[in-house]
């Protein structure tokens, strides 16, 4: 156990170190740093999606919309209403959380396919409000000049590297929340709900309450990601709330690995780098990526990090079995049960 923990720990440390030193390595390449900055804001939203889809097993297609609410709260408050970055950030988080809570009250009455359809409609309604309510949102013309964070002491956030480190703090917080959730009782309850709602409620788990909490928190993360995205880009437009964005977030999560701690960040950055590699045919990238999504859910639904975790799990088990035979104890014949592996702590 200790050993596998350290393998995972080393992996997480490697990712963290890469992220920490990225601005130093990319010192000359501001463009790539910008891509990383955008990627981190997306990744924070993907952590939100991970809570409701990864842990709780509910496919929410409203997250592009929640992201958009975050984007527009930040964008409109800091320009038209001249709020400061920090108060607008707080407002964005509070607003998306409240909207998520209210939407959850209705949406979570439905299950499975109905939930996905309901949330998809919800996402589209948010998109339509944003793209049609011209008096407030400026619709397709968008808004320029979204504020960057105000200076704190010597920290000047108009410097991309400094802003990058600020985002890294938020990202670390999102990953940490995911990690604590993963090992806490709340996380176990959510995983039980994912496995079977009926079974979960039969062992005394309040399914409705836990799903409501997960959905609300996950909307809040999406809003936080959106607010940071608006500030990083400096410009807001309706595309940042579209249904396409929902599916992109979904793909990031899927590539990285659902219900994992490092999956969202690794998946997001990996896919964004792929996007950059295919930049010349930006519009046609889904000719390749569409089949990739399909192949992923068919052949590797656990995603990259999920797959790595699975491999360390197998390795650990084989090692334990080898030790047992070495000692002379009868080898335990443990059949590979995919359901057990699913709930194994990753």
């Amino acid at each position: 156990m200790k050993l596998t923990f350290s393998i995972r720990g080393v992996g997480a440390l490697l990712v963290a170190a890469a992220l920490l030193f990225a601005p130093l390595i990319l010192a000359e390449q501001n463009y790539l740093l910008r891509v990383l900055i955008t990627g981190i804001t997306y990744a924070i939203a993907v952590y939100g999606l991970n809570i409701i889809l990864g842990f709780t097993g509910q496919l929410s297609l409203a997250h592009g919309g929640f992201f958009g609410i975050g984007v527009y709260t930040m964008g409109l408050l800091t320009t038209d209403y001249d709020w400061s970055f920090w108060s607008a950030l707080l407002a964005a988080i509070v607003l998306t959380t409240v909207v998520g809570f209210l939407a959850g009250l209705l949406a979570l009455r439905t299950r499975e396919a109905y939930f996905a359809i309901f949330t998809m409609a919800l996402g589209l309604i948010i998109y339509m409000v944003i793209s049609r309510w011209e008096d407030v949102t400026h619709a397709y013309s968008g808004v320029l000049g979204v504020k960057l964070p105000e200076d704190i002491g010597p920290l000047d956030f108009s410097e991309p590297a400094t802003y990058y480190y600020l985002l890294l703090v938020f990202l670390a917080a999102a990953a940490y929340v995911t990690y604590t959730l993963r090992v806490s009782n709340v996380g176990r309850r959510l995983l039980a709900i994912r496995t079977s709602e009926d079974l979960a409620s039969s062992i005394g788990i309040n399914v409705g309450l836990n799903k409501q909490l997960a959905f609300t928190a996950s909307a809040g993360f999406a809003g936080l990601g959106g607010a940071l995205f608006a500030s990083a880009e400096g410009f807001i437009g309706p595309n940042s709330s579209s249904i396409d964005l929902t599916f992109e977030l979904l793909m990031f999560l899927l590539v990285g690995g659902v219900a994992t701690v490092m999956g969202p960040i690794v998946g997001t950055l990996l896919v964004l780098m792929l996007f950059e590699a295919f930049q010349d045919f930006q519009a046609y990238r889904f000719i390749l990526l569409g089949p990739v999504i399909i192949a992923l859910v068919i052949y590797a639904p656990q995603g990259l990090i999920g797959r790595l975790n699975q491999l360390t799990f197998y390795w650990k088990r084989r090692r334990a079995a080898a030790q047992k035979t070495a000692v002379g104890a009868p080898e335990q014949n443990s059949p590979a049960d995919p359901h057990n592996e699913k709930t194994e702590v990753r």
Partner: peptide, 16 residues
Amino acid sequence: THHMIAAAGAMFFLHS
């Protein structure tokens, strides 16, 4: 959830 994600992949593929 897998079906819906795969279907979304097919949707994007056809769009592109």
